[in-house]
Amino acid sequence: MREVTVFVGGSTGTDPYSPKTWSGTAPRFLKAMEAEGLLDKAIGIRVPKLPNSLLLAKNFARDRGVWRKHFYFDPAYRRALTRAAASVPVSSPVLMQIGHMFSLPEAFPGHPCVSYHDGNLPELLASGFGIDGVSRRRIDQALSYEKQAANRMNAIFTFSEYLRQSFIRNYGVPAEKVFHVGGAVNLDVIPDPVPEKSYRSAQILFIGTEFKRKGGPQLLEAFRTVRQSIPSAELHIVGPTQVTDLPPGAFLHGHLSKSDPEQSTKLDSLFRDASLFVLPSLYEPYGIAPLEAMLYQLPAVVTNAWALREFVTPGVTGALVEKGSVEDLATKLTQLLANPDLLATMGRQAREMVLTQYTWPAVVRRMAPILQALAGER
């Protein structure tokens, strides 16, 4: 029996399988749900054009980032999105929503409802990123709405244990209703292993469009120190289109899209040539890029915080560095690059860890008994 109808809403439009949906995660997640025999149907919802335009006008701000936040945080927008969901006929016993931009329990009273999250607003606020200029009133409205929606759910799925604890601590959701099921890599094809992969090139790979939030400036400073000990070291940066003051040995590749064959080939080559992956974020809701790097047998050096420390074990799959510490980052990068045999061992272990725990079929299998129990109650 196919137990679940999944709703995706907001700026993604009406196609839940669009590669733009949920940062490319939704299509792969939905296909894994189909393969496991759990998905009845997937629905993309959006506010009708005229009400949406009125809400945009109501929340206008000169700064587009502030405008976007005021619009999405507006309770009127979220109620309108909930009404759009309520207009969809459903027959499956369990309903799931991606994120908390709307409320299925309000739209379908009496139906078991589940939500699935890679991050939440309290953690974003604590990070200090992405909220400049947003009014406190609008933030408080969004927090109130999300807390109410979360507590009306029959179950909440999270990408990480740290996020599970946040829902319990910040929204007051009972612990027995929040389940850490994990997240997964956004690759359609798992790269083949390279048994004799060499780690002697001392090439470091960084991927992250939001260069400042991902710790890019600290990485550049640390890399200058690395080059003093390992003059042949290289740093390859993917994501940002402009980075100033690149040190010798650092190369900027800009944005590389997986959907563009030429760019995808270039990205694959960077993964295969690298010895080490680094992501010293100042805030990271989850961190799919390190997991994808691990599939290419790359140990990962990441910040000792959030979900990152849940899948990077020091000395086993990589190393953890203190947030914002240039000295700690430089020291650990230098130590690892100087030990290619250790990198090879950690790279093999990292790939095996991802293959067993961080694929979408593995995530859906962890969800299945909870969804089936809710369907039985229905």
Rank of each mutant, 00 (worst) to 15 (best):
P19E: 09
A293I: 05
L54K: 13
I370P: 00
L256M: 09
A289N: 03
T12K: 05
A289T: 14
T265Q: 12
R213G: 00
T331N: 11
G287I: 11
N59I: 09
T12A: 10
F71P: 01
S198E: 14
A80C: 03
I156N: 00
V326Q: 13
S23G: 07
P191R: 11
E36N: 03
N339F: 00
S269V: 04
D63L: 03
G376Y: 12
K147M: 12
E262M: 09
A202I: 05
Q203T: 08
A126S: 13
V6Q: 05
G315T: 09
T14A: 12
A250C: 06
D328F: 05
L337V: 03
G128H: 04
G119R: 11
M1V: 07
E377P: 00
Y72C: 07
S201V: 00
V278S: 02
T313M: 10
A338M: 13
S229K: 14
A305Y: 05
Y286C: 13
E327M: 08
N339S: 15
T331F: 11
V321P: 06
D245K: 08
D74F: 03
R28Q: 11
A344T: 04
L124C: 11
S269G: 14
P195G: 03
Q335F: 10
G130I: 12
V88I: 10
S257Q: 05
I370T: 09
T265W: 10
Y199R: 06
T345W: 03
H111Y: 14
A85C: 02
M346D: 00
R309Q: 15
R62C: 04
W360V: 01
L256D: 05
L124I: 14
K58M: 10
R309E: 13
A289Y: 00
P16S: 09
L104G: 08
E36R: 13
D260N: 15
H111C: 07
T317K: 09
P314K: 12
G324F: 04
S198K: 12
S325M: 09
C113D: 04
A84S: 15
R78N: 03
S127P: 04
R378N: 14
A84P: 08
Q242R: 15
G249V: 13
Q203E: 11
G172C: 12
A274E: 08
A126R: 13
P340D: 13
F211M: 04
G376P: 00
R78T: 06
V238N: 08
Q165M: 06
K147Q: 15
N304Y: 01
K20T: 15
G324C: 06
S160V: 06
A293C: 12
T5M: 07
H255I: 05
T244Q: 15
N52W: 10
R68D: 11
Y116H: 12
V185D: 01
Y283W: 11
Y283I: 05
A76F: 07
G172F: 01
P285T: 03
S232A: 15
S18M: 00
R309F: 01
E310S: 00
F277I: 08
L276T: 10
K41T: 07
S257Y: 00
V354Q: 04
Q335P: 00
H236N: 12
D273A: 15
V364S: 05
S257V: 03
V47L: 02
V178W: 02
Q297E: 15
G9R: 00
D245W: 06
E292Y: 04
R137I: 08
L282H: 13
